[in-house]
Design a protein around this nucleic acid. Sequence first.
DNA 1: GCCGTTTTCGGCCCGACTGTTTTCAGTCG
Length: 582
Amino acid sequence: MNRQQIADIFTEVATFLELRGDNPFRVRAYANAARTIENMPEDLATLAAENRLTEIKGIGPDLAAKITELLTTNQLRFHAELKASFPPGLLDLLRIPGFGPKKTKAVYDQLQVDSLEKLAAACQAGRVAALAGFGEKSQQKILEGIALLRQFSGRHHYHIALAAAQPVLEALRSHPGVLRCSLAGSLRRCRETIGDVDFLVSAAPADAAEIIADFVSLAGIRAVSAQGETKASVVLAGGIQADLRVVTDPQYAFALNYFTGSKEHNIALRSRALKLKNLSLNEYGFSPAAEKEKSAKELGSSIPCRTEEELYAALDLEYVPPELREDLGELAGTPLPRLVTKENLRGALHVHSTWSDGIESIEAMANAALDLGLDYIGISDHSKGQRQANGLDEVRLGQQAIEIKKLNAQFAKQGFRIFFGTEVDILPDGTLDFDDATLAKCDFVIAAVHSHFTLPADVQTQRICRALAHPLVTMLAHPTGRLLLEREGYAVNMPAVIACAAQHHKIIEINAHPYRLDMDWRLWKHAKELGVKCAINPDAHSIDDFQSLAIGTAIARKGWLEKKDVINCLPVKEVARILLQS
DNA sequence: GCCGTTTTCGGCCCGACTGTTTTCAGTCG
């Protein structure tokens, strides 16, 4: 049983305990343990064998024993008992917005409702409104929530949420009453998927109502779910939930920090404020812990901070970029990385052309890259196995080499270079779609899985690792296949692939293409720790695809990556040296 | 269920909004 499976079981235990009305701190202990296990780079089985599980923060004797039970028997009796005590469809009810464990328990106990279908039916029959604590309005909201759930999966890709948020942010910014405004929440933290979009605005209290009224009536707003004096929630077109908070300008830095999260980062920060300075921290400011009733909201912050930088400084901390705010070591006191930016990128090393399935010529792609300020691209069209993508055989690859040579002579005066590469198929047994003599003619070789996605994870891992061990392979493309929300990826043991890349000094690609964003940022943090270099690549099939490099750097920052960790942040001469020697 | 430079028990982050209520519980972030 791997770490993800163990984490999933602990998460379910936390949910069941919550449904049962158990001690909330016990619930949190399981939820925190799940998160910790999910994110730790060390091998659980090794730690268990050495009796060192309790050295992990948040794992005590009880949870250590439960981890050991899971590792040795592949199941957890406690979990099985809990699970057996609830019907299988009950957890679905928790996905309804505004519908939590207490309400779930109420409809289950009093109406025997244990699925979304039964809940919808009960609402339509008016039986939910009749329950104590429920009413007509909540019944209606439940029905709307179920409808929304059915229509949208609940989370959205980073680039889609960003596209939906930007016009709203512009509208807020142009409002005369708005002093400062920003994105917040998971979108500001650059997570690959976004639950809802958060906006924060500072304004004079007298202007708040008008700003909120204008926000909820913006074009493209599909529904208003809540509207108060300082806060409103709406559903944007496309079904994305969005929240706006309005605060005064002195509160802005505190509110921005608070609403950016993550929840775990906030808890850690508040604990630190209490422990270190005896100060209570909320979205309005710091206040002495003893004077809780006279909060920062009424008195103002006991330490005024105009910016988040000042807020962190007040807690003797270096500024933590939003991308790192996950309570994964960013408050440990060690110097934080200087995160990679889009401006750091010097080239792109995964570019297709009309030679295979791209829609532009090599020359057009090179010109587009040059216009963006890049110094080089690497052409990597598909190999012969990709027939549907018009993959190149050995003969056409040779012809392409001649064209690239000609183009390089032409581009040399602009200081631009085209590297000649291939995106060679990894065959089912882990061998490659070209022989060594052919591969040796390329400047660089990207290996990629494009078939047999359904192999068992250990077989898939062996297949990829065999390809990575090939001396002529430079880089692994889209390491987990396709995507998070579509679930079109392939099962693979990524820690093992990362370890393999570290052993053979191979590069792993962060595929920046919005629809092919590949890898969990936690794994990038792990890769960085092992010294594995990455390439932020657009997997460009058209000129527009270069725009997606910004998304790639967002994911890289999320994984704590710096310039030195990203191969295509290097100047062309150094990249040439690295590619040509391998 | 975990944790400890107030350490083996008694804490565990904090506030807004909603819908149901005559003062609050539930949910969310």
